[in-house]
Design a protein around this nucleic acid. Structure first.
Lengths: 129, 129
DNA sequence: CCACCCCCTTACAGAAAGGTAAGTACCGCA
DNA sequence: TGCGGTACTTACCTTTCTGTAAGGGGGTGG
């Protein structure tokens, strides 16, 4: 999986934090996981319309390496894998909440709308979806 | 300047906010501008070691379009252009502060270090440089 | 007169990120 | 036998991002 040497030397905390959340779907994965607590691969896939299996796997692996996501594999008959946030993932989500509020505000000002996402219920207030 | 159709429909506030700060130097530009209030092109250039003129111009233009940065041109003998944060830029910076704190904390936990940057003094505490 | 500084712009090229499509291995259902 | 579901992997291609190099118009200093 020819991926990310990252964790490069950072110039400041923002730099370090952005490194970990930049990626087309990472914010959304955090969001889904925060909203539902625990999700399986296919559930996440359905929750992030437009994501490909490759990108989802790749992002989840990177987030696992970064210590944001916990991956629990059950060696069962139909394979079952459950994803959830680690403590770091939860604190990151909290740290992102003010950024989310800023973004929501901005969308309101600019008259932009959110896109409809099937199957997303009970969004945490902090995410301002 | 064949650039960014962006401002695409967003899924949540995080999405919208990340769209605006993602870019190799944008976090740092915000930081420099926050730290110094007003900066000229060449000052920013010297403050972001490694940035090319092209990237700096490009990022500054995008941030101007996004309403984060104010660009004041003085039609003087040696041309003078001053950059500063707009109100939106300042609130974005505030919203980023908790993310910066998270990142700083994370670097501490992981034993990562920041890179030395010549000429950066008086970093705002919120940025946790 | 020529280089140099200012603040860019343009053209070109490489790297990285993201997308598409197919394949893997196993099972249940009809 | 064939399809669908589970959770991926792999190869290949396109798009986006970033970097390198050079030019440009105007004025100042040597």
């Amino acid at each position: 999986m020819a991926k990310a040497p990252r964790r490069g030397p950072y110039i400041c905390g923002i730099d370090a934090a952005l490194d970990v959340v930049s990626g087309k779907w990472k914010g959304l994965i955090l969001w889904e996981l925060q909203a539902h607590g625990v999700r399986r691969f296919a559930e996440l896939r359905r929750g992030l319309p437009g994501v490909s299996e490759k990108m989802l796997t790749q992002h989840l692996r990177e987030m696992e390496e970064d210590g944001l996501v916990h991956r629990e594999v059950y060696a069962e008959v139909p394979p079952r894998v459950e994803y959830s946030l680690t403590e770091d993932g939860r604190t990151l989500n909290e740290a992102l909440s003010s950024l989310g509020a800023w973004g929501t505000d901005r969308m309101r000002r600019e008259g932009l709308r959110t896109v409809e996402v099937a199957g997303t219920v009970e969004v945490p207030a902090s995410m301002g979806g």
